[in-house]
Every structure is written in C-alpha cells, then in structure tokens.
Nucleic acid binder design. Structure first.
Lengths: 357, 357
DNA sequence: AATTAGCACTCTTGCCACGAGACTGCTAGC
DNA sequence: GCTAGCAGTCTCGTGGCAAGAGTGCTAATT
C-alpha cells in the first residue's frame, strides 16, 4: 500500500512536530509549516483518512492528531532525515573515547554515559554473555593455601573474576603452571558453552590434574549458564521523568520498575542482532509487561569482535534521527579506539570526525 | 533540656502514626490511641508547645501536626521501640545468605536486594576503596604476548581486575613467577596507599624487574587514588516513587537524580564510620544538593574485616525500627556466612536466627 | 496551675458551573 | 478535488460554594 506524497508529508509533519512539541498537531499547524499551498480544510480531510489507516489518532474529538506507533515505524523507515552530529556532540564523544580505556567494563560505562549525555535519554549498554566466546587459554594461579585464581582468556576478552576455593595446601606454583598448560591444551579452540557441556573432555584428563580441571569446569559452567547474566549498565534513569509521557506517576513508576529490573531487559535487547535495532512497543504489548516505550540499540564491536549492544530507552516519541546518528558514530568511535581494551600504554591520534557546522 | 513524659509520649504518637499514615496527626487522633486519660484540648496545648520547641510543624493553620527532622532524631535516639524480624523476614535473609557466595560483588548485590525486599525502600551497598587494605602478595600472569594479568591479594580481598598491556614478547612464564615473588617481597605488609606513594620502594627494585614493577605500581596507584570509586550498588530505585513524599514530580526527580549519580553518594555514606549511621537531612541541607531524605547505613564485615556499608535511602518518614533491625540482622548473617567469600565447596548449617512469632 | 468544654475561625478538598479557546467535521459552493 | 465558513465538541482554567477537619482561644472547673 503506497501513500500519496502529500500523505507522507503530513505524516512527517505530524511526527516531526510531535517529537519536538509533544502536543497534538492541528491541521492549521501543518498548513503553516509544511503545506502552505493547500488549505487546512484539505489537510483535515487527509488527516481523517490517515486516522482511518491507523497512522494517527485524536486524543479527543476536538483536538489535533498524534502519531501512532505505526506512524513512527513508517517515519523511521522512510521519512526520517539523516543527520550528522554537531561539533559539540562530537566533542563529547571524542572526549570519552579518544583515550586509553583498559577494561571492557569501562567501555560499557563510558558508552552509556555518552549516549545519555547527548540524547538526554536513559541509555543502556551491555556486554554479551561469554558462552559463545572461544577459549584461547586457561591460567590458574595459586594465591594462597586455599585460594586460586582462574583466568580464562577468550577471543572476546578475559573471564577473570573467578577466585575459587582450592585446598591446594603446599602444592607448589610450578604445579599450577603445568596444570594451566595442560588444561589449555584440552580446552583451546572450544567455545565456553561447548567446553562446559562436553562430558567427553572429562575422560581425557589426567588424574593428576583432575581436581583443578573440575574447578575450571565449574567456572566455565557458570559462564555458559544462561542464569549468569551479562553485565548491563544503565545511565540516566532519572531522565525518563523529563519526558512528558511519563509525567503521570503511574507511568513513571512502570517505566522505572522496568529499568530497576534491568536484568530483565537483556532478552529484549538480545532479541534481534542487526547492527541497528529499533523496537517500538505496540499498545497491546503493554500487557506483556513492557510499558509503552521505544528501545533503539546498536551492536558494538572492538577490533572487529562484537562485544555487546548499547542504545537508548525512552518514549516512543523520541528523536530517532539524532539517536541513530549518535549510536552510529559511537559505534565507529569504539571500533577505532586506541588499541581497544587491551591498551595501557600507547598514545594515539584523534578519531576521524564527521563534522557538520 | 528534658521533656515531660507526656511530651515524649506525644512525640512518639505523632512520629509513630506519621510513619504509618503519612498524614498530619490531630489532637483527637492522639487522644484516641495514645492518651485516653486527658482531653484533646490538653493535647492541643502540648502540641502548641512542642511546635514552639521545634519538634512539630503544621502544614497549615487548621491541620494536624507532622514531625520535624528534630522529632525523628529524638525518636530514633530515645523513643523508638526495638523490634526483631518476623519469621518471614528472617526467611528472606537466610535464603540469600545461607549459601555459598564466592565473590565480594555477589555479597554486595545480595545485601542490597535483601534490604530492599524487606524494607520496601531503595537500598544502597558499597565496598570500601581498597587503598587501606594491606598487600599480602602480588601475582603476575602472562596471558599472551602483550597482556598480563596483575593480581594483588590483600587482607580484605583480591584486586584482580587489572589486565595490563605488557610487551613481554617471548619472555617465559617462569620469569613472571620469579617477578611475582620478588615484587611480593618488596610490597608485602604495606597498605595499597603506602605502596603506591612510597617512592623509596622504586630504588630497591632490581633492574631486571623494573618494567613489571612499574606496571604493578600503576595498578596500585589507580586503586589508591580517590578517583577510583568503590563499587556501589543500588537496588529498588523505583521504590522511591512509592513514598508519598515523592509523589510530586519535582521531588521525585531530585531524588532519582541523586540515585542516578550514585557515585556521589559515596562521600555521604563514607562520612561516619560507626557500626550504625543515621543521617537525616535537615531542611536547610536541601540547598547543599541533598534532597530531603534519610539515609541509614550499617558497617559490614566479613570474617572480622570491615568491607563496606549497606543501608537504605528513603523519606525521613521511614520505619527506622524495622530498618535498623534488618540491617543489624543482615550484618550478623554476613559475618556468619559459610566461610565468607572464599568458600566454594563447603556446606554449612543454618544461621542462628532470632525468631519472633 | 492544670485541665477541659465549647465555639468561632481557618484552611483544604471536592464539586459544579461557566466561558474562552482550540480544532474538527460537515456542508455547500468554487 | 479543493476550500470557506460555521456549528459542534472537548479541554482547561477559574471561581464560588459547601462540607469537613482541626485548631486556638476563652471561660469555667478541678
């Protein structure tokens, strides 16, 4: 079904204006700013048709129109202007990313911070569950008589937060070095998930290393398990209240509760895996627990390896054009980041900026 | 200045009732439930006096009284009933802590979750900055040709999130084992802060280990630095909106912004170091950025070592008695936790419960 | 001197009515 | 197919009004 050029223009006018003003748009408004060459009566006729088609609604009989989710989808797909970041916005992004960041966590936090700062929306960023990462090596370090640190190096980073209780008594450190080498030889090249579930591996293990291998598997299993939630970071939750659609306390609460239970956002975010994902909740999705909102996320990679996603969560009435340009630019900035998360020493030049004046 | 018994009783009545109802308390209310043996007129006289003394205020001329921050302080210090947890509440706490928890982080999160679940308030938990911890040993592990993991074991736990970029090329792993031993011998017994700032240590280092020692110092410095914020976890931010005092959108926003910038809460929390801290913001502290609220925190230790604090943040009108009993009990539960954070294997019996029926 | 009964006064809250303003829908004419 | 014009509808802010809650004060009582 194709819309006439004038209808497109009207949808654009309504969405554009509504994004800025958050008030119903009247036929007169459209005529003044978008369609001077026809009368408001004509526009009124068109508006009635578009309402029948499901693109617009009237809050009440004698008010202007506001866009439906359908209109937003159409807007994002066909009508939305492409924009670039302003100099100031670029400055903000570069300030955050044109420096040494040693930890994946830090990237996560910085990403969320930048997005919120530029878009004034609540942002969300998360790092993928490690279960699909490939194991490169395993190192086990004796820390004390009853603690050992297990380090699993994978292609997307280091699973390093695993201090395990090991009654190693007076076993020497060389033992751990040898054990590390042996276990690495068994697991190298396997995905975390594969390693954690492949029972056949157990049989290949020498008795000498059995207990330490068991501990390794224990850690891998916890990471392969869906129950281990990926790191997720929210920034600017309070910004949600700046949006007039959540001026109503109940709506604000529904939204904040969603943000509070941020772990529950993961399946929503993880859903699609396109480089850019736009999720606009339908009115009837309200019942499924998601309050009326839109979530726009982009995939991020460091050094060519996809590490997770980041984006914004806000009212359906959001400045998609701006949001998308920000996400897009940040994605590039992260990929170009000085030596990615492994750097600690090297300096680097500026990110290539797409500047507008 | 001592208050008459009747005045105490009236303050208690007003605070108690206000905590439950959040509506101004009239002389009649007090007479009915707290002081049947005098008339409401007498109570009115007393109320007027207590208002002059600064314990109560009237929202408007013909309404009941509500307590001032002063009244709450008095209540908490002198009047508050001591209570114990109910069976259900104990069950919740035990469910969270009577199990193996391997990571300090997990304790943090569990603590915050439990507190929120029982008190219905926003909770906050944080782990102290490591700068005062004493170094027990340092281990350096070669992960790849240009990465090494630095593990600093201290008396309060392991500083392990330090993957550093090290151009170690084909230096063998034994070198790192030796370097670890050497560096441990130099730093053992020093506090993180002391180690990071004591330049004299540098001179004692053999040239052979210089570059790896420098990297270690780099990590210690980042932990000794105040700029490295301790981990802080919030739980249940949305609960703040359930409190009628934040029904006003602006107040809700002020509060949520405070929670959003959770790092800024650290100095507030770190302030006093008693086992129990109660901070009730004065009206005039509003200007200093802290919205009207109360923060109650307790110190927590694992195996006798103080690790951080946890507590609640909410309206001044909160159920202090309940909050304090919860914090107190959790503090015990953590300390008795099966082998603290180092356990991974051992089972254990139930925590000793203080049960009421 | 402390307490109390009684009453006038004050302030809030909910309700209703009213008018202004903003748009639309529709009709009739171009 | 477009437009001018107008009647009709709905929102929103305002003001008045009555009911209700609670106080402060005064005068009487113990």
């Amino acid at each position: 079904m194709k819309l006439s050029e004038r209808k497109e223009k009207i949808i654009e006018a309504v969405v554009d204006t509504y994004i800025k003003e958050c008030t119903p748009i009247s036929s007169g408004d459209i005529q003044k700013s978008y369609l001077q060459d026809v009368s408001s009566a004509t526009i009124r006729n068109e508006l009635a048709v578009l309402e029948d088609m499901g693109y617009l609604v009237q809050p009440h009989t004698s008010s202007g129109r506001i866009p439906t989710a359908e209109a937003y989808r159409h807007y994002v797909e066909k009508l939305m202007p492409k924009r670039k970041l302003t100099k100031d916005e670029l400055k903000i992004v570069n300030k955050y990313f044109n420096r040494k960041i040693t930890e994946l966590d830090e990237i996560l936090k910085a990403t969320a911070k930048v997005i919120t700062q530029i878009t004034n929306l609540t942002s969300v960023a998360y790092i993928k569950n490690a279960k699909e990462a490939f194991i490169e090596s395993v190192k086990i370090v004796k820390l004390s008589a009853n603690q050992a640190l297990f380090v699993v190096v994978t292609n997307i980073g280091v699973i390093k937060d695993a201090v395990a209780h090991i009654e190693s008594g007076d076993i020497g450190e060389e033992y751990f070095v040898r054990a590390s080498e042996f276990i690495t030889s068994v697991l190298r090249g396997k995905s975390v998930f594969e390693a954690a579930t492949n029972m056949a591996l157990y049989e290949a293990v020498l008795a000498e290393y059995q207990f330490i291998f068991d501990a390794t598997m224990h850690i891998l299993k916890s990471h392969a398990n869906e129950a281990v939630l990926p790191d997720i970071v929210l920034e600017g939750s309070a910004r949600i209240l700046e949006q007039p659609e959540y001026a109503n306390l109940n709506k604000a609460k529904a939204m904040l509760e969603l943000l509070d239970a941020k772990e529950e956002l993961v399946p929503v975010l993880a859903g699609s895996d396109m480089s850019l994902n736009i999720l606009i909740s339908k009115d009837d999705e309200l019942k499924e627990g998601l309050p009326e909102c839109a979530i726009v996320t982009a995939n991020y990679s460091v050094g060519g390896k996809s590490i997770g996603k980041a984006g914004v969560i806000g009212p359906i009435r959001m400045d998609y054009s701006k949001v998308i340009s920000v996400l897009d630019y940040i994605s590039k900035a992260i990929n170009l980041m000085p030596n990615s998360e492994r750097t600690n020493e090297s300096d680097s030049e500026d990110i290539i900026g797409e500047v507008i004046d």
